[in-house]
Every structure is written in structure tokens, then in C-alpha cells.
């Protein structure tokens, strides 16, 4: 077998082609929604919600509910519970995420250990799997991506305003609470759709890393959306290919590709890009024309 044939070999397998499609869609979806998640300082919620949805995955078959519906409803309920607890201001959002999602994850582990699973295998849920990507999984991913793209396009300025400055957005006619709830819905749906490919433990990285890299490369919000979505899709494709060749879980390779891109951008751009992403840039004072008090314009 020539090198070329070896490189193209995976494309002869139907399951790989489906897995590749799913990884591209999953990467793009996580890259898109990751922009809003990271800019809102909610990076941890992706980690938490994926763990919460794991509980739904375990419980749904036992309750006789379709896995997608059961886990989706479980995830959305967890997201809304986190929002409600965090808004009460008694405890912070990080603590709310910690309580709700780890409890849900623990319940999922307990149910799977005690009763087994009729759904995806335990390891596959944790780290993602290239195997067994069904047409229905692809449809769910494509639907979730289309829904997210439609929501973020139609409500582009509302989401931008409520992400940048929720207090002023609220008094400027933007329904900030509605935007928050809609974002939680899109996030829950996205995590649910991508969990099989990327896995519970690694979803957070695919939400955060492409968005952070995109932020390092641009100061424009609209460009950041395109960059993060594209980076996520590319990392999904390359990661899935490596997963097949190296026989490593797909979530792991996708995240490692994301991390490699982050390192390359960091090295190429130097600390300047990292400061941009981390809010460490010095304030730049430009010359200001000053008129004396009492002077008219």
C-alpha cells in the first residue's frame, strides 16, 4: 500500500465518513456557541452541563424515554436550575454549576453502574467515539447547527448587546433574560448533539479553545464568530482523522488538535495575542483635544 493509499484508506469506510461529518459539524457547533460562552465568562458551564447531561443519558433508558429527549430535557433543566440558583445571588454561578452538575453526573454513574446501559457505552460517553455514528446522530448535529446559526443570525445584535453589556441592553429594549434562556437552550442542545463524538469530559475544551484562539487572532466580534466556527470544524476533521489512524478516542484527538492550534498561534503571535484574549492589554491613551470650560463646540 502506498503512502497516498494509506492516507486515503479511512475514506473507504462508511463509518469513518459518517464520523468525519459528525466531527466537522460538532466542531463547528461548539466553535460557534463557544464565542458567546467564553465572552460571558461561562467557560465552566460547558464542562458542567456535559456532566449533567451524562446523568440524563443514564436515566433516560431506565425511564423508557428516548435518550435524546430524556438527556436533552435533563440538560435544559440543569441549565435553567443553574441560572435560577445563580440569579438568587445567594451563591455564585460557579458554585451553582458545581452543585447541580456534579450531582447529576454522580447520579448518572450510579445508575449506569447499578443497572447498566442500553444506550452508548460508558467509555464512549466519557471520551467520544468514532464508532457507531448513525444517520440520526448526523441529523441531530446538522439540526442543532442550523438552529444555532439561525438563532445567532436573527438575534445577532441582541446577543451581542446582552453579552457585552447586559445591564444597558436590558434598558435598551433587549430581553436579556430571554436571551440567557435561549443561549442555555442552544448550549444544552449542542452538548447533547456532540456528546457521542467528543465525550463528556472533553466537550468543554471544544467550546473554549477555538473561541480563545479566534479571540487571539481578531478584535472584531463578527470575525471571531467565523474564525471560531471554522477552527472548530477543522479541528474536528483533523482530530477525527487522527483518531482513526492512531486508534485513540475521537474526543481526545479533536481536543489535542485544538490545543496544538492554540500553541501554534501563541508562538507565532507572541504574548500580544494572549494579552488580547486575557484582557491584559494596557489602555492606550490617544491625544485628546481639550477646549476651555465655557467654550462652545
Amino acid at each position: 500500500m502506498t503512502l497516498w493509499e494509506t492516507l486515503l484508506d479511512p475514506f473507504g469506510y462508511d463509518f469513518f465518513v459518517k464520523g468525519l461529518g459528525a466531527a466537522v459539524l460538532a466542531g463547528a457547533l461548539c466553535g460557534l456557541i463557544g464565542v458567546y460562552i467564553t465572552l460571558r465568562g461561562m467557560s465552566y458551564i460547558g464542562h458542567g452541563l456535559s456532566h449533567a447531561i451524562f446523568g440524563g443519558y443514564a436515566a433516560a433508558p431506565l425511564l423508557g424515554v428516548p435518550i435524546v429527549l430524556g438527556a436533552g430535557a435533563w440538560g435544559l433543566a440543569s441549565a435553567l436550575a443553574i441560572n435560577a440558583i445563580a440569579r438568587s445571588r445567594r451563591i455564585g454561578a460557579d458554585a451553582a454549576i458545581g452543585v447541580v452538575t456534579t450531582a447529576s453526573f454522580a447520579l448518572g454513574v450510579a445508575l449506569l453502574t447499578r443497572f447498566g446501559t442500553k444506550g452508548p457505552a460508558f467509555d464512549a460517553l466519557l471520551f467520544g467515539s468514532i464508532n457507531g455514528v448513525a444517520d440520526s446522530d448526523l441529523l441531530l448535529l446538522a439540526g442543532a447547527l442550523a438552529f444555532a446559526a439561525a438563532v445567532f443570525t436573527a438575534l445577532y445584535r441582541q446577543f451581542l448587546f446582552s453579552t457585552f453589556d447586559p445591564e444597558v441592553a436590558d434598558v435598551s429594549g433587549v430581553h436579556v433574560k430571554r436571551m440567557d434562556a435561549l443561549l442555555m437552550l442552544v448550549l444544552s442542545l449542542s452538548i447533547l448533539a456532540t456528546l457521542k463524538i467528543i465525550g463528556v469530559t472533553l466537550v468543554a475544551a471544544t467550546l473554549v479553545i477555538p473561541a480563545v484562539v479566534a479571540r487571539m487572532l481578531t478584535d472584531s466580534f463578527s470575525r471571531m464568530l467565523w474564525l471560531s466556527t471554522g477552527l472548530g470544524a477543522c479541528a474536528g476533521a483533523v482530530g477525527m482523522y487522527l483518531s482513526f489512524q492512531l486508534e485513540i478516542p475521537s474526543g481526545t484527538t479533536i481536543v489535542l488538535v485544538d490545543a496544538a492550534v492554540f500553541l501554534v498561534v501563541l508562538v507565532v503571535t507572541g504574548g500580544r495575542a494572549l494579552r488580547r484574549a486575557g484582557g491584559l492589554d494596557d489602555h492606550v491613551e490617544l491625544p485628546v483635544p481639550v477646549r476651555p470650560v465655557g467654550a462652545s463646540r
Binding site: 451581542l160 453579552t163 486575557g278
Partner: peptide, 20 residues
């Protein structure tokens, strides 16, 4: 109180208030 690191240009920021 503003997040000055937010990726937004001056024109984008002004246009936010025309969001309906």
C-alpha cells in the same frame, strides 16, 4: 464597569442599541 477587552469596534458598539 465595561469589559474593554471585548472584541468589538466602535461602530459595532454604537450599533448595538439598534437591535430590534
Amino acid at each position: 464597569t465595561v469589559n474593554w477587552n471585548f472584541p468589538v469596534t466602535v461602530a459595532e458598539c454604537v450599533l448595538m442599541s439598534r437591535s430590534t
